[in-house]
């Protein structure tokens, strides 16, 4: 008995000190370069099948905004898993992508409601920090799902943002062997995803030595601003080879500008995210391609990671979610709503 008590004390002291050490040593997160990471495809192999949650478990999600299809799809993924396993799932969102304080209020309001885990997709790197701290104090695991990266986040599930740009750059290198002039339409300045996507594209394409990035301008995720920016760039560089836009909405704006300038034949346009409009545009030949990050599947993976954490599995800090470059060549494989089939295609 005494031994047992001693042992228990020692273990709890150890976990306590370990916990504190971890809290103090946790380096500011960079989701793209964090060494403590794994790919989603290895989850089952390394940690076994998905543990079943206790009955009546509640999970909460706070998204950026529901005006954007990406975040609705992500919520759909969460919900898929919740439905399959009989979880209660609450999904809330701020009123728009600029509503930083509103999102913080929503996140804080959820903490008090007894959720077993919270899935946050913050507006900015900093705006949910107090909520994360509060959740931590309340002992609720928080997953930072995608996009903006909370530096103090203990768990991150999402894309390798830089990889989006790298894949598009690689396409140009493979398919436009003569090189040429390319332009980037950036998302909102200061947003991590925008910066990483742009960097991934620019670094990779510059390394090839054949391409020149002649313009890289922010269009704040806005289709209209992207249209205007692309129109200006096309006027200035009529011999442009292609555009890379940080998201699909902006890419579709660029497509309109390219068509208006009569350059649909010569200028390749790529987006990121893989929204349904982008798929339609690829099929009709307007958009050259997009890097799909499969939001529904991402949501499913994130929810699964949450369940594994709740079951006490010691996952790496970052779990990377699926991504693929979609062009006319492979679009048929990936344009399926059957998530199981999608998983199979991606795992192949």
């Amino acid at each position: 008995m005494q031994h047992f008590l001693k042992g228990a004390l020692a273990i709890s002291a150890l976990t306590l000190s370990l916990g504190m050490a971890q809290a103090q040593d946790l380096a500011p997160l960079n989701s793209d370069s964090e060494p403590d990471r794994m790919d989603w495809s290895e989850l089952e192999a390394k940690f076994g099948p998905l543990p079943a949650p206790a009955a009546g478990t509640k999970v909460g999600g706070v998204s950026k905004t529901l005006t954007n299809e990406y975040w609705r799809s992500l919520g759909q993924g969460y919900q898929n898993v919740a439905d399959k396993l009989g979880l209660t799932f609450v999904y809330q969102a701020a009123q728009n992508e600029g509503d930083q304080l509103g999102q913080l209020s929503i996140a804080e309001d959820l903490i008090a409601q007894g959720f077993a885990a919270l899935l946050f997709s913050p507006q900015t790197d900093a705006n949910l920090v107090p909520a994360v701290e509060k959740a931590k104090a309340a002992g609720i695991p928080v997953l930072n799902v995608n996009d903006a990266v909370i530096p103090t986040a203990e768990h991150y599930v999402g894309n390798v943002q830089k990889d989006n740009g790298v894949r598009v750059a690689q396409w140009f290198i493979d398919n436009r062997p003569d090189g040429g002039k390319v332009a980037v339409i950036e998302g909102q300045p200061g947003v991590y995803a925008a910066g990483q996507r742009t960097a991934g594209f620019t670094e990779t394409i510059n390394a090839s030595g054949k391409f020149e990035v002649v313009a890289s301008v922010p269009a704040n995720w806005s289709r209209e601003e992207a249209f205007n920016a692309a129109s200006t760039i096309l006027q200035q560089y009529p011999d442009l080879t292609g555009f890379y836009a940080n998201n699909d909405g902006m890419a579709l704006g660029v497509v309109e500008a390219v068509k208006a300038a009569g350059k649909a034949e010569t200028v390749a346009v790529f987006g990121t995210d893989g929204i349904s409009d982008a798929y339609a545009a690829i099929k009709s030949g307007d958009l050259t391609g997009t890097v799909d990050s499969f939001p529904i599947l991402t949501g499913e993976v994130a929810m699964e990671v949450a369940l594994r954490l709740m079951a006490g599995q010691d996952l790496p800090r970052v779990v990377a979610t699926p991504q693929a470059l979609i062009t006319k060549d492979n679009i048929d494989t990936f344009s399926t709503t059957d998530q199981a089939a999608l998983r199979a295609a991606l795992l192949k």
Partner: peptide, 8 residues
């Protein structure tokens, strides 16, 4: 927030 953001 423990941070200052220019988009705040």
């Amino acid at each position: 927030l423990g941070a200052a953001e220019p988009t705040m």
